[in-house]
C-alpha cells in the first residue's frame, strides 16, 4: 500500500527487512560463484550451496512480503472494482485488506506450528550440511511475523475508516493503485524511503 500516514516504525521495519533480503541474495550470489569456481578448478564443493540457496529464498521472501504490501504490489484484479462508485469500492477494499491480513495471520500461525515441531524433534536437514532447521525456520517465522503485524495494522486502519464512513480516504489508501500512484512510482526515488519526510511523490505511510 502507499499507505496511511502512520506506523513509521512498521514502515522502517519492512524497508529494512527487504534490504536484508537483498543483501542475502548478493551474499548467495558470491557463495554460488565461489562454489562454481572451486568445483570446476579444484574439484572442491562446499556441499550445500543449493541448501543455503533454498533458505535464502524462503527467508528473503518472508522478509519481503511486508515491503511488497507497503507498495501495494500484491496482485489484485482491478478491472471491475475501479468502475464501481466510491461508496461501493470502500467495503470491497476493506474486505480485501481484512482477508489479506487473515491470510497473513494464518501463514504465521502455521509457520509457528512448523517451527514448533522442528524444535520438538530437533530436526536436522537430511543433507550433508545437516543444518539445524530451527535457524532458517526461525528467521522465516520472523519475516512472516513482520508481514502479519503490518497487514493487521493496515486492516484495523481500513476497518476504522470504513466504520467512520470515510470512503474516499479508504479508497485512496487501500484501493488498487491508481494512475496517480503510478506516476508517483515512476518519478519516485527509492532513496527517499529512508527519510520519511522527503519526496513529494514517494510512497508515504
Amino acid at each position: 500500500m502507499v499507505s496511511p500516514p502512520s506506523f513509521p516504525w512498521a514502515r522502517r521495519l519492512a524497508h529494512g527487512a527487504a534490504l536484508a533480503a537483498g543483501y542475502a541474495s548478493l551474499g548467495l550470489s558470491l557463495l554460488i560463484t565461489f562454489e562454481v569456481l572451486a568445483r570446476k578448478l579444484f574439484s572442491f564443493s562446499l556441499q550445500g550451496v543449493d541448501e543455503i540457496g533454498g533458505y535464502v529464498l524462503a527467508i528473503g521472501v518472508s522478509f519481503s512480503f511486508a515491503y511488497a504490501l507497503l507498495h501495494r504490489a500484491h496482485t489484485r484484479v482491478d478491472m471491475l472494482i475501479v468502475r464501481l462508485p466510491g461508496a461501493l469500492q470502500a467495503p470491497l477494499n476493506a474486505a480485501a485488506m481484512l482477508l489479506l491480513a487473515g491470510f497473513s495471520l494464518f501463514m504465521l500461525w502455521r509457520a509457528v506450528g512448523t517451527l514448533h515441531e522442528t524444535l520438538e524433534f530437533g530436526s536436522l536437514a537430511s543433507t550433508p550440511l545437516q543444518t539445524p532447521l530451527w535457524i532458517p525456520q526461525g528467521l522465516w517465522v520472523i519475516g512472516l511475523g513482520v508481514f502479519a503485524a503490518l497487514a493487521s495494522l493496515l486492516a484495523l486502519r481500513a476497518l476504522g475508516l470504513l466504520v467512520r464512513g470515510q470512503a474516499a480516504a479508504l479508497n485512496r489508501e487501500f484501493g488498487p493503485r491508481s494512475t496517480q500512484d503510478e506516476l508517483d512510482e515512476a518519478q519516485h526515488d527509492y532513496a527517499d524511503e529512508t527519510t520519511p519526510a522527503a519526496g513529494q511523490g514517494s510512497p508515504q505511510l
Binding site: 534490504l19 511488497a68 527509492y190
Partner: peptide
C-alpha cells in the same frame, strides 16, 4: 544497489505469494 534490492524484494514477494 539498495534500489535494486528493494525492487527485487518487491517483485519476488509478489510472485511468490501467488
Amino acid at each position: 544497489l539498495n534500489e535494486c534490492f528493494l525492487s527485487m524484494a518487491r517483485t519476488t514477494a509478489m510472485i511468490m505469494l501467488i
